[in-house]
Design a protein around this nucleic acid. Structure first.
Length: 460
RNA sequence: GGCUCCAUCAUCUAAUGGUUAGGAUUUCAGAUUUUCAUUCUGGUCAUAGGGGUUCAAAUCCCCUUGGAGUCACCA
């Protein structure tokens, strides 16, 4: 069985890059009828883990990812780590080191001054004497002293690390007894039966250390897939400073989960020329060994395009529901079909749709200066008056085509082009020169409101 | 700086060692639209550089250059 996991540290919200690795892990687990686990890496100390976990679950819920089993908190598994550290101690694969932080710092400084790599000098590796007094020991693992460690990575291929270059007897438990990251990751992944570790490639250089732990404990190694980072437009790792890294911000901005997931899955992965992937298609097609080796740049234009694509293909009932989050209540509006049809092709986001809705439903508070200048001329008044009169005389105005007929009649009668009436009418109705079809707008707001808006402009 | 990874249009990407290097986004034209947006049609735009290997290299090897990640009693 394939078991994957998502193991964020509790930073307070789910990062867009985190969502991507979570998605890939999720897809791979589900595709194989396996399990997708969620674990909070909070060994350091008590940041507000519960809130962080809640934020992650909330984001998962929004995009529709579901983890299996309970959320594991490393902070509540301390005993387990201590047991395994003790086991290593007992077997002589780890040892207590009584070097103080100050001594360590001094050593490091010396080494750096000599342009050497800063590393622990193994002074307590084979220590058998009496421990110095008044000093809390850390536990260090006995790392190999020579040779190399190869990470067999499903994305990068075999990556060889020279032990002398990167390793030392690293600390697996701090002086206060709490375990450190590279130790607990390996222990947890092994204990939880994780078979496929899919994570950001910023973890690649940690992997040899984790392999040391796996080996010392006699655990079988999982498969590793280190997926390349998402970069910002500067080509650097995406960070908080780049804005919009909180997944829930995308909900705020009016993106749909489908679009966001589709966007993320196509970063570093593809299937021929296909751009649009439903969740089912992703589930059917995704394989982590097809992931690209190179980093990709986060590009909003593509996300926008995807989002508008999904918006256009969303049924009106669903749109109606989604728009409620953006403060738009249309459920009881009798013309909502016409309204939504009129705007769904015009917006990139739900937030934009919400704006469009109010632009139609609420009569313009002011008229755009440039629009007035361009589209409201001397002759416009007479035309608008004629149109208003025609509207009053017409019966059974319901559908956009009904209004269109009235416009047509006025235009033919007066021997003018559509533009002559369109521009001033548009200003009257919308306050500006762009927007959905006028016949649609009128059908949505009705005759009375239409006449009211025309009169307002005439009086202006 | 050490170690590691990476390198096809501006961006996301495709291309059993043999294609006029394909698609998508962006952009630019044209068409459609009373307007704007959408939509449709078309165009511009790439194998970082240099050496090899080969009949043949985007693809394999080496070097250079450039970029990124990582080097804690953080995760």
């Amino acid at each position: 069985m394939v078991v994957t996991r998502f193991a964020p540290s509790p930073t307070g919200y789910l990062h867009i890059g985190g969502l991507r690795t979570a998605l890939l892990s999720y897809l791979w687990a589900r595709r194989n009828n396996g399990k997708f686990l969620l674990r909070i890496e909070d060994t350091d100390f008590s940041r507000n883990d519960e809130a962080a976990a809640r934020a992650i679950v909330e984001a998962f819920k929004w995009v529709g990812l579901e983890h299996d089993g309970v959320i594991e908190y490393q902070s509540s598994r301390l005993k387990i780590y201590q047991e395994y550290a003790q086991k290593l101690l007992d077997e002589g694969k780890a040892y207590k080191c009584y070097m103080s932080k100050e001594e360590l710092d001094a050593l490091r400084e010396e080494q750096t001054a000599r342009k050497e790599r800063a590393k622990y000098d193994n002074r307590y590796r084979d220590f058998t004497g009496t421990p110095p007094e008044g000093c809390e020991a850390v536990i260090r693992i006995k790392a190999p002293l020579e040779g190399s460690i190869t990470v067999h990575d499903g994305v990068k291929g075999d990556v060889v690390f020279n032990v002398a270059d990167i390793l030392d007897d690293f600390i697996i438990a701090r002086a206060d007894g709490t375990p450190t990251y590279n130790f607990v990751v390996a222990v947890d992944d092994a204990l939880m039966g994780v078979t496929d570790v899919i994570r950001g490639d910023d973890h690649l250089s940690n992997t040899p250390k984790q392999i040391v732990v796996y080996k010392a404990l006699g655990f079988p190694l999982p498969k590793f897939f280190h997926v390349p980072m998402i970069h910002n437009s500067e080509g650097k790792k995406l960070s908080k400073r780049d804005g919009a890294t909180d997944v829930m911000m995308y909900k705020q901005m009016g993106y749909t989960p489908e679009a966001l997931l589709n966007f993320l899955v196509r970063l570093g992965w593809s299937h021929g020329d296909q751009e649009i992937f439903s969740m089912n298609e992703m589930l059917e097609l995704f394989d982590p060994s097809d992931i690209n080796r190179s980093a990709s740049v986060y590009n909003v234009d593509k996300l926008d395009w995807l989002n508008s694509h999904y918006l256009k293909n969303t049924p009106n009932d669903k749109l109606c529901e989604l728009l409620e989050f953006h403060g738009v209540m249309l459920i009881s509006h009798d013309k909502r079909e016409i309204l939504l049809d009129a705007i769904k092709e015009r917006a990139k986001t739900l937030a934009e749709m919400a704006v469009l809705v109010s632009e139609i439903l609420v009569s313009p508070a002011e008229y755009d200066e440039a629009a007035l200048k361009k589209g409201y001329k001397e002759e416009s008044r007479a035309i608008l008056e004629a149109f208003a009169a025609a509207l009053k005389g017409a019966k059974d105005l319901h559908l956009p085509t009904d209004y269109h007929h009235v416009m047509e009649a006025v235009v033919t009668e007066m021997g003018i082009g559509f533009g002559k009436i369109g521009q001033p009418l548009r200003i009257a109705l919308m306050g500006k020169l762009s927007g959905p079809g006028l016949d649609n707008v009128m059908a949505i707001i009705g005759v009375d409101e239409t006449l009211k808006r025309i009169e307002s402009l005439l009086k202006y």
